[in-house]
Design a protein around this nucleic acid. Structure first.
Lengths: 141, 141
DNA sequence: TCCTAACTTGGACTTCGTCTAAGTCAACAC
DNA sequence: GTGTTGACTTAGACGAAGTCCAAGTTAGGA
């Protein structure tokens, strides 16, 4: 985690207490937090931090590639600190829970060049949807 | 398209003029419209239709599986009338344009049961990201 | 033709995110 | 250590997208 702060400093970041706290919140918990959750946890350590700063900092971390933005349905964006390890997401349609998953193979390979409409394709995001054990309806025996 | 209206009637829908217009807008154009665009096109034919009704109707069509919701980044949801033909989406990171694409294979097969955390996985959505020909920066020779 | 539950309406409201002007401060130079 | 300055932060207004609600309307069966 001091790794993260050092990478940020190396890229010319001014290391303010606000940015440090946001980076530590993301780096400390390997879960997928919304911006508001990040703000709440950051505010627990630095009560006067503003929402705008949290949004700014998250946006910068995403632009630097240190954090991934996960777009779940119509809900709030979530932020995934696990950006340095390729993975996909499994989302519970019931409660919105997200897990990182590691499917086989490269989804990019499944899309041949002649099916790309001239696009320069750089990434493929896979979102698996289903119900988590807690949200499964009970089964008749 | 009268197919769609008939399927809806068969499922017990009351066929109001508002629902008919929304269904026709989606069915007529095989593009990916936002709710506001659907509202604008519906209002061209039925000026007094309200936003709430458009949202309600789109939500019902999605629940019935007649239309897919496509979540692009942080922008407005888009609605895809091509729900009866399996496909994935290719999104331009520059302008937000969306194309339907048809990759090989089944992405669900890439996620083994022991990597599913006990979830009952029912679907896999793949979003390819890149730049469309219009948004590509010009190449040095 | 009547009745009624289902549907629609307009507008207020919520949520999520962005913007702005004014104030603050990290980091560099001395 | 002190001063300087441009980058950073703040509060709150603003905006876009979507939901909710009470009152009014209507499709379709009796």
């Amino acid at each position: 985690m001091s790794d993260l702060l050092e990478r940020l400093r190396a890229r010319g970041w001014r290391l303010t207490s606000q940015r440090r706290v946001v980076a530590e919140v993301l780096d400390g918990e390997h879960v997928h937090l919304t911006a508001d959750e990040v703000h709440a946890r950051a505010a627990a350590r630095l009560p006067e931090i503003s929402r705008a700063t949290v949004y700014n900092t998250l946006g910068e971390l995403v632009a630097l590639g240190e954090v991934l933005e996960v777009a779940t349905d119509g809900r709030a964006r979530r932020y995934d600190p696990n950006a340095h390890h390729a993975h996909q997401h499994l989302v519970c349609s019931g409660c919105g829970a997200i897990r990182d998953v590691h499917p086989h193979g490269d989804p990019l390979a499944a899309l041949p060049a002649d099916g790309r409409f001239g696009f320069t394709v750089t990434a493929a995001e896979v979102t698996y949807r289903g119900l988590c054990p807690n949200c499964l309806p009970p089964q008749a025996p």
